[in-house]
Every structure is written in structure tokens, then in C-alpha cells.
């Protein structure tokens, strides 16, 4: 087990070195950034705790991937496998539990602030950790015969595959949407909608193997336009329950919903063109920052999208010509 974690550490170090980041610096800065960033976020928005929980859950889901766990199961004895998975989940959930506990203790020191909610969040994080570990202990491949129908099956593959992998996010988002409508809270409903938008961006995160680009009888530009067209149509289908619900429940905020639609489409467009501008590599850290900046300052996307589009079309043309 020790060898396994040493190997993981070496892999992480190699990634950081590739990104030209000093591993020791990252080890110092990341915990500080996590604590400061989380505290700042928790102060500024009521939904920050929820967002942190969703992030940690996506971490569990990634660690519970069937191929990864199948490999671990056939490589290590059962007890070692379970220990590895327990430690991995602990690494994800422990900082979050400590964060909520810290907030709870802070409220005890300052009696004017109510800290009960933080203890609940801490307990919820623990439960999430336990559920995540239970997911890891399930029989790998046991659910392989279950096939989730998807409205995106006609035009594979990104949304069809992504939807099946992240269906739980959609369920969670719909739950939040219902909560938002019941509490007459537009912001919560909009937050739920954009959770699915960012979930959909994640469908495009990994560059596909070269064969899946090569196989198209199209030019680079044509393939990119096709990807954008299908992606945006699918994004609209995915967001339809949210858009319609928000329009019906909050008719006075229709303009915000329309702006949201444009923004969602722009986010996806930017993400797709940036992905293929880096193809066959993953988006590097510098470009990831530029994209994130574009997300925060949307008018920038007017310049970023054409810039990445040109580069992406050229990149794809290299594979297709």
C-alpha cells in the first residue's frame, strides 16, 4: 500500500513538473489557498458549503471509476484494496470536515454567530465520505448490465457518455431546483441550472483518442462547427427543464434566464474550442486560467472564442488532412 501511494506522489510530481510548477511550492500553497479560498467563499455566499460538497462528491465519483477500481482490485489483496480506497477518500473528505468543524468551533468562540449549521455540514461531509467509501467497496462491474437511457444517444459521444457518468449531478441539480422554486429563491434555481452547465463542460475535459477525430470525413473547421452545433443543441436539451421551470416560476426574471442561456452557450463554445486548440494534449494551466478569466469576465469571450477557434481548426486539420 505504501508503494502505491509513493507511486501516486511521483505521478503528481511528474504532472507538476510538466506544468513547470515546483512540487514543494504547490504543497505549501495549495493548503493555504484551500483554507483561505473556502473561508472567503463561505463568507460571501450561502451556497458555498453546497458547492464544496458537490466538488468533493465529484472527487469520490472520479476515484470510484470502474476501470480504476478493477485494476486496484486485481492488483491488491481485498484488505489492502479497501485500505487504499479508504485512505484516498479520507484525503478528499478530511480537509472539508476540518473546515466545517473549524467554522463550528469559530462560532462557539464568537457566541453572536450561530454555528449549528456548520456542525451539520461537517456531519454531512462525513456521511458523504462513508457513502463514497461504500461505493468503492461495491462489486466492481456489478452494475455494468444497467444501461441508462439518454436523449443524446442519436448523436454520440460526449453528452451520451457524459450524461451516464454524471446522472447523479442532474438528479442533485433538479432537487436544488425544486428547493429553489419552493423557497421562491431564483438564485438557487439558477445555481442548480449552472451546475449542469459546468457538469456538461466536464464532458469535454479529456481529449479523445486520435481515432475518434481521424475517423471524420470533414475538414478541421467543419468538424469543429459540428461539435459546437451538437454540443449546444444537447446543452439546450439538458437545460430545458431548468429554463422552463425558471421561466414559469419566476416570469419577471425572464431576461436573466435569456442571459443565462447565452452565457451557458458561450461557456460551452469557449470550452470546446479551447479543448481542441490544445488537442491532442489537455488544456494546460496557463490556458485554463485564461478560460477561467473568460468565464468570470464574459465580454472577454468575444475575443477568446475566435482566437481559440482558429487554433483548434488548425489542430484538428493536422489529424484530418
Amino acid at each position: 500500500m505504501r508503494n502505491y501511494f509513493q507511486l501516486q506522489l511521483r505521478i503528481v510530481q511528474r504532472f507538476l513538473t510538466e506544468w513547470r510548477l515546483a512540487p514543494w511550492l504547490v504543497a505549501l500553497v495549495v493548503p493555504v489557498l484551500f483554507v483561505l479560498g473556502s473561508l472567503l467563499l463561505l463568507e460571501r455566499t450561502a451556497y458555498a458549503a453546497l458547492a464544496i460538497m458537490v466538488l468533493s462528491w465529484s472527487g469520490f465519483a472520479w476515484l470510484s471509476g470502474s476501470q480504476r477500481n478493477y485494476f486496484l482490485r486485481i492488483t491488491y489483496p481485498g484488505a489492502t484494496y479497501r485500505k487504499i480506497r479508504l485512505w484516498e477518500n479520507t484525503v478528499i473528505i478530511l480537509p472539508i470536515v476540518l473546515l466545517f468543524v473549524g467554522k463550528g468551533l469559530g462560532a462557539v468562540v464568537r457566541p453572536e454567530a450561530s454555528g449549528v449549521a456548520w456542525w451539520y455540514w461537517g456531519a454531512l461531509a462525513l456521511v458523504q465520505g462513508l457513502v463514497g467509501t461504500a461505493m468503492a467497496y461495491r462489486v466492481v462491474g456489478g452494475r455494468a448490465s444497467l444501461k441508462l437511457p439518454t436523449p443524446f444517444s442519436r448523436q454520440p459521444f460526449e453528452f451520451a457518455v457524459g450524461f451516464r457518468r454524471a446522472w447523479w449531478l442532474l438528479v442533485f441539480a433538479i432537487f436544488l431546483l425544486i428547493m429553489g422554486v419552493r423557497a421562491q429563491n431564483f438564485e438557487l434555481g439558477a445555481f442548480a441550472w449552472f451546475m449542469t452547465v459546468f457538469g456538461a463542460l466536464n464532458f469535454y475535459q479529456k481529449p479523445e483518442p486520435g481515432f475518434y477525430v481521424w475517423v471524420h470525413a470533414l475538414s478541421g473547421r467543419q468538424l469543429l462547427l459540428r461539435k459546437l452545433r451538437i454540443g449546444n443543441v444537447h446543452l439546450l436539451i439538458l437545460g430545458l427543464p431548468f429554463v422552463l421551470t425558471l421561466l414559469v416560476a419566476f416570469p419577471a426574471r425572464w431576461l436573466l434566464v435569456v442571459v443565462g442561456l447565452v452565457l451557458a452557450s458561450a461557456y460551452l463554445t469557449l470550452f470546446i474550442v479551447a479543448k481542441y486548440a490544445a488537442y491532442p494534449n489537455e488544456i494546460d494551466l496557463v490556458n485554463a486560467f485564461i478560460i477561467a478569466f473568460g468565464f468570470v469576465v464574459p465580454p472577454l469571450m468575444i475575443f477568446l472564442i475566435p482566437y481559440y477557434f482558429k487554433r483548434a481548426a488548425l489542430r484538428l486539420q493536422l489529424v484530418l488532412s
Binding site: G65, S66, K147, S153, P156, F157, A160, V161, R164, R165
Partner: peptide, 9 residues
């Protein structure tokens, strides 16, 4: 791709 059916392929 994981979770892609034969028909979709």
C-alpha cells in the same frame, strides 16, 4: 468510451 453502447459506437 466508458458507458457508450455498441449501437452508439
Amino acid at each position: 468510451f466508458p458507458k457508450m453502447t455498441g449501437r452508439e459506437y
